[in-house]
């Protein structure tokens, strides 16, 4: 039978920054084709297909309870594969090759990580699990 794709609603207007993304108006309905844990979801909106930031979407049925995973305060060891300089005040600035602990793998691709006493958001696409092959 047909694969039933989840339908989400855009919660704000989004203008694409790269070719393979989708422009969205707040209220647009999209079908979710693929959820990438880096926070980019591949969606279909009418006849258009492209990548959309998960942070701009909420489930059509149950808008308030998202399927966010639970935080893991013990922390999981990850290594940064790219440096990133914080833009928002709740983000961390880290160099490439730093070992940090991932506390919360948020669906929007901005995981909460801890380095010593500091915690903040960091792009999950710049992290790989310690021991994972590159």
């Amino acid at each position: 039978g047909p694969i039933i794709l989840e339908t989400y609603r855009a919660i704000a207007d989004y203008s694409k920054c790269t070719k393979y993304e989708l422009d969205l108006q707040a209220g647009d309905h999209v079908e979710i084709v693929e959820k990438n844990d880096n926070g980019w979801w591949f969606c279909q909106c009418e006849s258009r297909r492209g990548w959309v930031p998960a942070s701009y979407l909420e489930p059509l049925e149950s808008p308030d309870e998202t399927e966010e995973p639970e935080p893991n305060y013990e922390g999981e060891l990850y290594i940064t594969t790219n440096s990133y300089t914080a833009v928002e005040d709740d983000e961390l600035t880290l160099e490439e090759g730093e070992t940090i602990e991932v506390i919360h793998k948020l669906l929007d691709g901005w995981w909460v990580v801890r380095k010593g006493e500091e915690t903040g958001h960091y792009p999950s696409m710049f992290l790989r699990a310690k021991g994972e092959k590159l």
């Binding site: 919660i11 880096n38 990548w51 942070s55 701009y56 792009p123």
Partner: peptide
Amino acid sequence: SIKQPPKNPPPRPPVDVRRKRT
């Protein structure tokens, strides 16, 4: 190919949404 996600991190949640969720 189109199935390759963008190489840059996605934007943070729109500010008003973040306030609502936290």
